[in-house]
Nucleic acid binder design. Structure first.
Lengths: 153, 153
DNA sequence: TAAGATTGACGTCTCAATCTTA
DNA sequence: TAAGATTGAGACGTCAATCTTA
């Protein structure tokens, strides 16, 4: 087989990256659905709230926490609220703002989701990586993220 | 700083993987939109058709080409067809089936999209990878894909 | 005037039911 | 009965306009 150019090698890496993400995430969502649990988007919000001081985060800061779009936040929080997993609280120091606050039910839901999510990550992702590969991957993605985020300040 | 366990290292890699995908793809979609071009999902279909013999693929085989779900294929192809980029043709050998066929307009659209897509990949992804890192990444994702696909035959 | 958040309109995705042909 | 594809209903995402407070 002819040697690949550097460009071809990197295009292959990109294609593998995109495809792996699509397939792995679909598998994980399927497992959550089979266990009658909410989607990953909900997990991300619940986890962000659980880590935050007071289990509460301002709405616009939640949106900055990646994956989530600002335009969709109100409705996503609506759905979480309808399910009893979060509630809104007016921000005392800023009359315009609201906090999303994790409820006990929300914390319980996250604890039920984590084992399913964790097992899926371990099986689909971790198992196929040596430690140093995982480390190299983390570092590479961090470089990309830092650059992408610096690029549009 | 305390040493990370292997598990922590791999969790960090997973988090970086998911976050990088979200941020990079969003950046790319934004660039395409700014250039008044269709979304990446359309590119994937156009490119799959262009590589196929006769520039045509059976609908259910397109869906298997990753990212696309069978349930959404009909409507995605509807939109491409409305835009004049593909057309349907009855499969002669199987009265149930259809081919999606790439039109000349579809091929032209893909050619207009590629430079924007390629430049974005180069800038956001390639630039931050050494050649051997790209190669290691491709190999690792391929292992995950092979395992995930074998796991549900 | 701008920031934080919500809403309406619209487009897209998913599930389940359906239709047609094998 | 199953495979290929479409469709209706409802969930979800996005854009732009809007409302309220800073």
């Amino acid at each position: 087989m002819a040697k690949k150019t550097v460009e071809e090698t990197k295009r292959s890496a990109w294609a593998a990256f995109v495809t792996a993400h699509a397939v792995l995430l679909e598998r994980i969502e399927t497992r959550l659905a089979q266990a009658k649990l909410p989607a990953l988007a909900w997990y991300d919000v619940l986890w962000a709230l659980e880590r935050a001081p007071g289990r509460q985060v301002r709405l616009h800061e939640l949106a900055a926490g990646v994956v989530l779009s600002r335009s969709n936040l109100s409705r996503l929080i609506d759905r979480l609220e309808d399910a009893g997993l979060t509630r809104r609280e007016q921000a005392g120091e800023d009359g315009r703002g609201y906090y999303a606050v994790l409820t006990d039910e929300g914390a319980a839901m996250r604890r039920r989701m984590w084992p399913v999510y964790e097992a899926a990550i371990a099986e689909l992702f971790d198992r196929h990586l040596e430690r140093r590969e995982a480390d190299a991957m983390r570092a590479a993605f961090k470089r990309m993220l830092d650059a992408a985020r610096a690029g549009d300040a």
